[in-house]
């Protein structure tokens, strides 16, 4: 396959399969969605929270599955609940938020695994953790489309309030913005993003989509909305390239998406015009400085 010389064919050949079309559509939506919600996580220094929620949905999945209700509802409640516990631990004790997150993360995952065993649930842990974008159905695509539309509308409507709240939470509270609601809305948006991504990329890899494309963008732009737009482009591109790589090289799709996103980040880290390690303005001076010290020694 790789020897195919015609570039157009390389692009279009996989599109004859429905599972490839579904996978590509859903990953573009997820790229956009994760950019918007993930950017808010990053600017609040809450990158780990995506990780926590992604794993904390498991007990909810298990219970909902057992009770026969919509598993996504169970996942949503469970994810939100985990963030409330983190906030509660932080408020009521001297324990810092990073430790609280690590604790809740592993605690919820353990509870989920326990419930799956005890309730003899048929939830496939492997697909929960790693997903499989090549088995997404039209229903999955539609669900993701609705969630994406819903969250983008919400963020657009409350953008200036969310910007204020995430930049200066105390200041936002001081002018009387409803900060508790804004926070709950953000957490709900992140939880919904994770639920939308679960089937496709799995909970382990959704964390990468929430973070990698957006920090890549963060190194290149100077405003939050630009970070979201560029992050969406990077996320979607990583997704599409990852899926093609997975198709042609016969490697796991989730892993290749994450690797492409990580490589893009590495490129920005090294070569960003303003902040790149090798390209930022003061680097030339630094290189000279290091060189001079070496000569002296």
């Amino acid at each position: 396959m790789l020897k195919m010389t015609n570039f157009i064919d390389i692009i279009f050949e996989p599109l004859q399969f429905e599972f490839m079309r579904n996978a590509l559509i859903i990953i573009v939506f997820l790229g956009v969605l994760c950019a918007v919600t993930g950017s808010f996580l990053i600017v609040q220094r809450m990158g780990l929270l995506g990780d926590v929620i992604a794993h904390a949905v498991l007990p909810g999945l298990a219970i909902a599955f057992y009770l026969g209700i919509d598993i996504f509802l169970g996942a949503f409640i469970s994810g939100i609940f985990s963030t409330l516990i983190i906030a509660w631990i932080k408020e009521e004790s001297k324990i810092k938020i990073d430790v609280a997150m690590a604790l809740v993360f592993s605690g919820f995952l353990a509870l989920g695994i326990m419930l799956i065993t005890l309730l003899k649930s048929r939830i496939d842990l492997h697909s929960f953790l790693f997903g499989d974008i090549l088995v997404v159905t039209v229903t999955d695509v539609l669900r993701t489309l609705i969630i994406t539309f819903f969250i983008l509308t919400f963020i657009k409507l409350f953008y200036k309030e969310l910007l204020f709240y995430t930049f200066n939470p105390l200041g936002a509270q001081a002018v009387g913005l409803p900060v508790k609601w804004l926070n709950l809305m953000l957490i709900s948006a992140i939880t919904l993003t994770i639920i939308a991504s679960m089937q496709g990329v799995g909970v382990v890899l959704v964390v990468s989509l929430l973070i990698a494309p957006n920090i890549t963008a963060y190194l290149l732009v100077k405003e939050l909305h630009q970070m979201m737009i560029l992050g969406a482009v990077f996320g979607s591109i990583s997704g599409v390239i990852g899926i093609y790589l997975s198709y042609y090289l016969n490697v796991p799709s989730g892993a290749s998406i994450v690797l492409v996103a990580s490589i893009l980040f590495l490129l920005a880290l090294l070569f960003s015009p303003t902040q790149g390690i090798l390209t930022r303005p003061e680097m030339l001076y630094k290189f000279r400085h290091i060189f001079r010290i070496k000569i002296k020694n």
């Binding site: 600017v43 220094r45 930049f167 200066n168 100077k222 405003e223 939050l224 970070m227």
Partner: peptide, 8 residues
Amino acid sequence: QIDWDYPI
């Protein structure tokens, strides 16, 4: 209280 690296 402010994160001065916030993209704004």
